[in-house]
């Protein structure tokens, strides 16, 4: 009896592990979507910490509001820079991930005993030939990393770490590492000879590419509290 159970268990484990090797891009996306199917809405507070060369901003608190499938709003006191892409890496909220036909499996890798399926987004209309790679955890079915490449040159990487709340894997910390083409000029403030300051902004072409990071730390999630549609009056044009 014990041997039978062991055989069945081994068979199940093999089936699970081999299943991820045969899934189509659409099926992989569906699996990442499935775990959020009961996520109707949520609000979350986020600390935005920017570490970008020649750019200093105080740590900002932004409140994000999301309602399934595509309502999104960010609110903050004063000013904040919020990454435009992949802030919420859920299949059913992300415009790109809603088009499984535009994906292909790039490769399957194992890093630190963790299996990943790397999906590649293909956009034939993109003249810049951007390549977007989604690293899907083949066990938990979460998107753990996104790479954006332009002509095989890495432009940005987004690393997600998650927390499990009410059965949903929601972002805990998201780290955006990106290259700023031609950088941000090392402009100085007003002076007698440059009364308004920042005249160096006219010499952008002389700048080099600079790498910067934006870290977003999420806290105080409120899940499925029933946010009204009217709340999202100023819908953000964000490819969340």
């Amino acid at each position: 009896m014990k041997i039978r159970i062991l055989i069945i268990l081994l068979f199940c484990m093999y089936s699970i592990s081999s299943a991820s090797d045969t899934l189509s891009p659409g099926q992989v996306l569906m699996k990442t979507q499935l775990i959020y199917s009961n996520l109707k809405d949520f609000s979350v507070k986020a600390k935005v910490i920017a570490d970008i060369p020649n750019f200093r901003m105080p740590v900002k608190t932004v409140e994000f509001y999301y309602k399934n499938p595509d309502l999104f709003e960010a609110k903050t006191k004063g000013f904040a820079l919020v990454p435009k892409y992949c802030l919420l890496p859920f299949s059913n909220s992300n415009k790109i991930l809603r088009t499984p036909q535009n994906f292909k499996i790039n490769k399957r890798v194992t890093i630190d005993k963790k299996k990943y399926i790397i999906l590649q987004y293909i956009n034939d209309n993109d003249k810049l030939k951007n390549k977007i790679l989604f690293w899907v955890d083949a066990y938990l079915w979460r998107i753990d990393k996104i790479n954006i490449l332009q002509q095989d040159k890495l432009l940005s990487t987004i690393d997600f770490s998650y927390q499990n709340l009410d059965g949903f894997w929601l972002p805990d910390t998201t780290l955006f590492t990106m290259i700023f083409p031609k950088g941000i000029p090392n402009a100085s403030g007003p002076s007698i000879s440059d009364p308004f300051g920042g005249s160096q902004f006219g010499t952008l072409q002389n700048q080099i590419d600079l790498e910067g990071q934006v870290k977003i730390i999420f806290s105080d999630y409120k899940i499925n509290k029933g946010i009204d549609d009217n709340f999202f009056e100023n819908r953000n044009e964000i490819a969340h």
Partner: peptide, 17 residues
């Protein structure tokens, strides 16, 4: 818009300066 040109492709400006 003028001063945040290097950020335009990757960031959304929340609020106004």
């Amino acid at each position: 818009q003028h001063h945040f040109l290097p950020f335009e492709s990757a960031f959304l400006f929340q609020g106004s300066l």
